[in-house]
Every structure is written in structure tokens, then in C-alpha cells.
């Protein structure tokens, strides 16, 4: 059975007085499946995603994650919500000068005391989990290599692994394939979909590649100019709706 775990209600965000990026966005996310948010650059996809784990503070509206209103939280309470939400980034955002294994363990920082973190002292349990995760991702041999030695696809796998090390109840992925070639994009999406399904956690993915979105989405949300203009299944995503999301249809031919 799928219950609603995330409810976004009347969310608005403006960075300065004249630049509003989100206009009254409402969206409910259920506890399983892949939700892909499509839309052109600047539609507000990234801002919407960053409001969910409070990397960005919304101007108005509510975000309710597992019954807790996220956007009013501060300090420790906010960090505790953050560690329950994993995030994958467009440019991987690995700490390049640390090893692959240590990048995985960054996913545990939300659970570690500051004192242990400062000394880089991880529990045996965490190290074991990180190694198992690397094994699962096919990256075991790179464990002690520096993260900037990996290829794009490998780095994004580390990014996914790091997010899953948090034991998240929700996975966010902001344009996870935009820096990758088409073949690697599909492989990375497959890895992410598979791991999320195993753990029975929902995934929200931002993307502008419509074909890739059709291939992996259980549900598609279309955004344009800071508003949700489509919400439905892949079958419902017609040429007309795509024209509405991206503006015009000349690019489809």
C-alpha cells in the first residue's frame, strides 16, 4: 500500500523581490516509485527539490515530510530531517580530494558526533556498510582511490551510494544524468531505480531529457515558469502537454 510521505502545499519561493521562481506549487508524493519532474532550465525544478530538504528556505507554503513540517525547522531538528532524505547531484558533488570510501562515509555524518567526525573516526559497522555498498555498485576496487580519479558514471554511482548510506526514506536526484553520456545515463538511472526499489523508498528525479523520463518514471510532473503544468502517467504525456511544458513544438521534430 502506498501512503503519502511528502506533501508540498502552496509553496512559493522568490530569491529577491523581483525574481520569483516558484508560484503556489502543491504536490503529494507517495511512499514508492519514481517521480520524474521535467521542464526547461529555469523552471524551478532545482529550487523545488532543495526546499524539500531545506537547502533552500521557501518564502511561503508548507512541506510536510512524514507528518513533520520541514520548512519551519532549525538546527538539530532540521539536520535530523535532512539525514533521512538522500540527495544525488548533477555534478556529483563528491569531495574530490577524499577517497571513494570516505565519500561513501560522508553519508553517515548526520549520524556521527562532531567529535568523531573531526577525527574521521567511523564505526566498524559504518565502514562495513560502505564497503558492501561499493561492492554492490561494482566499485570495490576503487575504495581507496581519490574520488577525482573516477569517470563520470563511476562518480555518480558513488553519489548514489553516499545518499543511500544515509538510510534515507526518500531519495532526491537533481539532474543526475545531465553531466553523463546517453549510455551511462541509462545505466546510472537503472542503478538508482534498482536500489530504490530494493529499499522500497520513493525517488524524485529532476530531468530535462523527456525520453529518459518516459523510460524510468512511474509518474511525471511537468513544470514551466515556476508552476506545475502537468501531473500524470507517462502515457498521459502527449505532444500537446510537452509543448505546454517546454514551449512550442519545433524541437520535437
Amino acid at each position: 500500500m502506498s501512503e503519502t510521505i511528502l506533501s508540498i502545499q502552496h509553496l512559493s519561493k522568490s530569491y529577491t523581490a523581483n525574481t520569483q521562481v516558484l508560484y503556489d506549487v502543491s504536490l503529494d508524493v507517495v511512499s514508492e516509485g519514481i517521480l520524474i519532474v521535467i521542464g526547461p532550465s529555469g523552471a524551478g525544478k532545482s529550487t523545488l527539490m532543495r526546499c524539500i530538504n531545506h537547502l533552500v528556505t521557501p518564502t511561503s507554503g508548507k512541506i510536510i515530510f512524514r507528518g513533520v513540517e520541514v520548512s519551519s525547522l532549525h538546527g538539530k531538528a532540521m539536520r535530523e530531517v535532512r539525514r533521512r532524505i538522500g540527495m544525488v547531484f548533477q555534478e556529483f558533488n563528491l569531495v574530490e580530494r577524499l577517497t571513494v570510501l570516505e565519500n561513501m562515509l560522508i553519508g553517515r555524518l548526520g549520524y556521527m558526533s562532531t567529535w568523531d567526525a573531526l577525527r574521521r573516526k567511523y564505526s566498524d559497522d559504518d565502514i562495513g556498510k560502505a564497503e558492501a555498498m561499493l561492492e554492490r555498485l561494482g566499485l570495490a576496487e576503487f575504495a581507496l582511490k581519490r574520488a577525482d580519479n573516477l569517470s563520470g558514471g563511476q562518480r555518480q554511482r558513488v553519489g548514489i551510494g553516499r545518499a543511500l548510506m544515509q538510510n534515507p526514506e526518500l531519495l532526491l536526484a537533481d539532474e543526475p544524468t545531465s553531466s553523463l553520456d546517453p549510455k551511462t545515463s541509462v545505466e546510472v538511472m537503472q542503478t538508482m531505480a534498482e536500489l530504490a526499489r530494493e529499499r522500497r523508498i520513493p525517488v524524485i528525479v529532476n530531468m530535462h531529457d523527456v525520453n529518459l523520463a518516459r523510460r524510468f518514471a512511474d509518474r511525471i510532473v511537468g513544470m514551466a515558469n515556476g508552476r506545475i503544468v502537468f501531473d500524470g502517467s507517462t502515457e498521459q504525456l502527449t505532444k500537446d502537454t510537452l509543448a505546454k511544458i517546454y514551449g512550442g513544438d519545433s524541437w520535437m521534430h
Binding site: K76, R83, F89, E91, L94, E96, I106, T114, A117, Q166
Partner: peptide, 15 residues
Amino acid sequence: KQVEAVRASGAPFLS
């Protein structure tokens, strides 16, 4: 970007 990723993990400030 690297800072943002660590922040998203819920790490406390000094971490």
C-alpha cells in the same frame, strides 16, 4: 557544490 552535498547529509556545522 561539495559543501552543499555534505550539508544535505545532515552533517552538523563543524563536520
